[in-house]
């Protein structure tokens, strides 16, 4: 890659194992700054494992992960948010017994600039007004949709340059899903946050993204423009339910 087009995130031949099971069998992908890229695939294809490997929670056995041109595989996971790499994990994983506000503050845990954190809190509240109403409520008592908003808001509190989103539409009503996707688009367009989106809802994801990777049993089997994949017959059959 030349200097003009350095990917913000790049995986080179990443292999990740859980015990003896290989969950990723040599995954390579790259994301350019400012892009929305999506990973689609069936259950158990290794999408979540890919995101967890990027964040260092399940370190790769071989291969390497590069972020902003630097190798980050092998780094301790807690160092990544401060470099602007944040994840909204699968199943939201908010802190159930902390209040909404405390959950959001945890997203800014590594930050020391109190004023900036306060401003970002207001920003998240303006993106998701329902969170402002519920700020004193325990996170675990929110509805599924509100929890997803909280999870996204929490990640935004770290002022990410790159946001990894794992199935933000999981278990949500279509109206809420559309709202959340519009927010994701806004974060990307207005704030220039690069987004890597893992989705089961391939239709929506492909409409939002510019490029997509298709994963099957631990491998990337296809890579193309999102438009092209939407028109692809095989993809239509397998993932778009047509």
């Amino acid at each position: 890659m030349t200097g003009t087009a350095t990917p913000i995130l790049e995986l080179r031949d990443v292999v990740t194992c859980y015990g003896r099971i290989q969950a990723l069998k040599g995954v390579s992908l790259s994301v350019m700054p400012g892009e929305i890229v999506t990973i689609i695939g069936a259950n158990g294809a290794g999408k979540s494992t890919t995101l967890m490997t990027i964040c260092g929670i399940t370190p790769p056995q071989s291969g390497a992960v590069f972020y902003q041109g630097q190798r980050i595989s092998g780094l301790s996971p807690d160092l990544l948010p401060s470099r602007g790499l944040c994840q909204v994990p699968e199943g939201r994983r908010i802190f159930p017994r902390l209040t909404v506000r405390e959950n959001l503050e945890m997203g800014a845990f590594f930050r020391r600039d109190k004023d900036g954190v306060q401003r970002d809190l207001e920003h998240v509240f303006s993106l998701f007004p329902v969170l402002r109403e519920r700020r004193r409520q325990r996170g675990g008592t929110l509805s599924g949709g509100e929890q997803q908003m909280l999870a996204i808001g929490r990640a935004l509190m770290g002022r990410p340059r790159m946001l990894l989103l794992d199935e933000p539409s999981l278990g949500l009503a279509p109206l809420i899903v559309r709202h959340i996707f519009s927010i994701i688009e806004r974060i990307n367009k207005q704030e220039g946050v690069t987004i890597l989106l893992v989705e089961q809802n391939a239709n929506l994801a492909l409409q939002l993204a510019s490029r997509a990777y298709v994963m099957e049993t631990g491998r990337v089997t296809m890579e193309d423009d999102a438009r092209a994949l939407l028109a692809n017959e095989a993809i239509k059959k397998a993932y778009l339910g047509e």
Partner: peptide
């Protein structure tokens, strides 16, 4: 407290 609630999520928060 964050570790008590969800260790992996806490790690993802730095």
């Amino acid at each position: 407290e964050a570790i008590r609630e969800d260790e992996t999520a806490a790690e993802l928060m730095g």
